[in-house]
Simulated scan of single mutants.
Amino acid sequence: MGMNSIDGTVLVTGGAGYIGSHTVRSLREAGREVVVLDSLELGRREAVIDAPLVVGDIHDRDLVTSTCHEHNVTQMIHFAAYKAVGESMEVPAKYWRNNVAGSVDLVEACLASGVHDIVFSSSCSVNGTPAVVPVTEDAPIHPESVYAESKAMVERILYWYGQTSGLRSVSLRYFNAAGASFDGRIGEDWTHSQNLVPLAMKALLLRDRRLKVFGDDYETPDGTCIRDYIHVADLADAHVKALDYLGRGGRTVALNVGTGVGSSVLDVLKATAEVAGESVPYEIAPRRAGDPVATFADPGLAETLLGWRAAHGLREIVQTAYAWHRSEVRRHRAG
């Protein structure tokens, strides 16, 4: 290896999506060359801003290989995946084919192109409902949905490619990504989202529905589920630092990426009301299958290995999300 892998280009699959587009911006701000591969089925072309965009599929080995060669790709971040838990239980084959088999095709094409550093978008859902919180990386792998299982499988696949092909990878197990960019340029499109923060903003800003709160009878202080909400800007920063870690010769590892703070559904609604000056209309609905009761991260290992820790909390998440969604609503009304 004459060249350090961090001197080359980063291939970002799914880089037109929510977390992907924020990470592309962080990479550009860090001075990295980037090329995005996205099918645009769920991504938005305008979210990529100034990075080159290749429209295509992770299954297309020829396209991946030619993209790697043309752009001098030396590292990859792999976001491209379907991520709706409910849908994964209804149409599992879609998730096995795209998230699992697609990742195998992608890794094979990258290896054939001499790319050996991969940062993978995994999920805290690989642990299911953890027996102990905060969750550490050695918690049992216990997926409770096809989606979560697809992430756990790709982690294992990457591990074995490390044994057989010298691939090195960092699997980042995200907790609940939320918020929007601080300059208001990009955020989380609520059209396909099933996440609490955008749905709360939708109920607040459109005033045409009540937010469904799934269950208020859990064994938690206020009866609603507890999650670790992490600002998307912090999450993007973790990806940049993970690439640097691999560039320094770091070994394959899976890391929790969260704040270490658990917030209930009602905590999020309270924070939203404080920021917006009006409360989110909601109703209590039955519990949802596959929802863990309480989970939040012990982010200590990510800090030790990557020198990364979350800089923002729930308030900044809600402030940036509210500002972005409000400007989007105005933009659509004006348009």
Results as ranks from 00 to 15, higher is better:
Pro140Val: 13
Pro140Gly: 11
Tyr147Asn: 03
Glu149Ser: 15
Glu149Trp: 12
Glu149Pro: 01
Ser150Arg: 09
Ala152Pro: 08
Met153Phe: 12
Ile157Met: 15
Ile157Ala: 13
Leu158Asn: 13
Tyr159Thr: 14
Tyr159Met: 07
Tyr159Pro: 00
Trp160Ile: 04
Trp160Asp: 15
Trp160Val: 12
Tyr161His: 13
Gly162Phe: 03
Gly162Met: 06
Thr164Phe: 12
Ser165Met: 08
Gly166Met: 12
Leu167Phe: 07
Arg168Asn: 13
Ser169Val: 03
Ser169Asp: 14
Ser171Thr: 07
Arg173Trp: 11
Arg173Val: 10
Phe175Asn: 06
Ala177Val: 05
Ala177Pro: 09
Gly179Lys: 02
Ser181Cys: 06
Ser181Ile: 02
Arg185Lys: 15
Arg185Gly: 01
Arg185Met: 06
Arg185Ser: 06
Asp189Pro: 11
His192Phe: 15
Ser193Phe: 04
Gln194Asn: 14
Gln194Thr: 15
Leu196His: 00
Val197Gly: 00
Pro198Leu: 00
Pro198Cys: 02
Ala200Glu: 02
Ala203Gly: 04
Ala203Gln: 06
Ala203Trp: 03
Leu205Ser: 10
Leu206Phe: 08
Asp208Thr: 09
Asp208Asn: 13
Arg209Thr: 12
Arg210Cys: 09
Arg210Pro: 00
Arg210Tyr: 10
Leu211Gln: 00
Lys212His: 04
Lys212Ser: 09
Asp217Cys: 03
Glu219Cys: 07
Asp222Asn: 10
Gly223Tyr: 11
Thr224Cys: 09
Thr224Gln: 05
Cys225Leu: 11
Asp228Pro: 02
Val232Arg: 07
Val232Trp: 06
Asp234Ser: 12
Leu235Ala: 06
Ala236Cys: 08
His239Lys: 04
Asp244Phe: 02
Asp244Trp: 00
Arg251Asn: 09
Thr252His: 14
Thr252Gly: 15
Thr252Phe: 10
Val253Pro: 02
Asn256Gln: 13
Val257Arg: 07
Gly258Met: 04
Ser263Leu: 01
